[in-house]
Amino acid sequence: MDPATIIGILLAFGALFGMIKLEGVHIEGLLLPAPMLLVFGATIAVGIAGTTLKDSIAAFKAIPRAFTGKVIPPQSVIDDVVALAEKARSEGLLSLEAEAEKHDDPFLKGALQNIADGTDGEELRILLEDEIESRVAADRSAAKFFMSLGGYAPTVGIIGTVVSLTHVLENLASPDELGPLIAAAFVATLWGLLSANFIWLPFGSRLKKLADLDEARMTLLLEGVLAVQAGSQPRLLGERLKAMVPVQSLKGGAGKAGKAAKGEKAGKGTAKDQELAA
């Protein structure tokens, strides 16, 4: 799990409460039910109105993923694909059927099973590209929903402030009450801006980033497994896949299969050294 979202949101609210304490603001003066009800309720309502009910439900179901989404290092993916290439060259493509059972990723598992079943390379490419497009489209739909909430919230907050100021104008005959009423009126604007920039926009950006990373990972797997099917040399395949990834993204993370393959090579090298020493 990548904790960026949790850390970022906690730091943002921490900075806000730090400012409240330093300014001597009473926190209960900001936690007013009426403006909060309008901002959160109306923002979600107009967000739902701008899309389909099914997409709205799917977007809210994606919220946990914003906190628990895994970021798999590209190097780990490359190591796994190289290990599969070595397995296929030494034991044949049918051996990939057994390898498919060892992986939890449905995308990779399906690709390996299709290779073992003898699916044509071009047909497999079309199938995998369609699967990537459909999976990424669902993730980006959730991201777009929260980005739209981030756009609606400030405006809804302004609407709440206008409504409250109307109430203020009705009480001009009571000057002593104007200060608290005006202060309360701007709470709606505060929550509109706060919810947009501290909640909705970060959720949308996070889900979009996870969708982009997942698309890049599946694209690496797509090119990798098709090269494995074509019988590419493992070392050259690894170099080719590395060329598809920004250099700064290649740091860290070796896949389980890649580590196992390196372990086997190290074991063989040790055995040879022992023979030479004997």
Rank of each mutant, 00 (worst) to 15 (best):
Y152Q: 09
M19Q: 10
F67Y: 14
G92H: 00
S141C: 11
T155W: 03
D104C: 01
G255N: 09
L124V: 05
K61Q: 12
F17K: 12
L194V: 12
K268H: 07
I48C: 05
G255D: 13
T119E: 14
A137F: 10
L94C: 01
H167K: 10
K70G: 07
P64R: 03
D212P: 00
F13A: 11
F17S: 09
E129P: 02
K262Q: 13
V225W: 08
E91V: 03
F186Y: 11
N197W: 06
V162M: 14
A173V: 05
I115Y: 01
G110N: 15
P73V: 14
L190Q: 04
A216W: 05
V247S: 14
G269I: 07
K256Y: 05
A183H: 07
S134Y: 06
E122V: 00
L128E: 12
G69W: 06
K70Q: 14
V168Q: 03
V46S: 05
Q233T: 11
S95T: 05
R235M: 10
P246M: 08
M19L: 15
K21M: 15
S56I: 00
K61R: 15
L149W: 12
L165H: 11
L220W: 03
D117T: 09
L31W: 11
D55W: 02
F40Q: 09
H167Q: 11
S164Q: 01
S249G: 02
L194W: 07
K268I: 14
E28H: 08
L165F: 08
L181F: 02
I9P: 04
A143H: 03
D117E: 14
A257G: 15
A277C: 01
H26C: 01
T51M: 00
A59L: 08
H103P: 00
G50D: 06
A111E: 04
L108C: 06
T166L: 15
P33C: 07
M218C: 07
P3C: 10
I7C: 05
L30F: 07
E122D: 04
K209R: 15
A227M: 06
L237P: 02
G269N: 12
G179Y: 06
A138W: 01
F107S: 07
L193W: 04
E23M: 02
P175D: 04
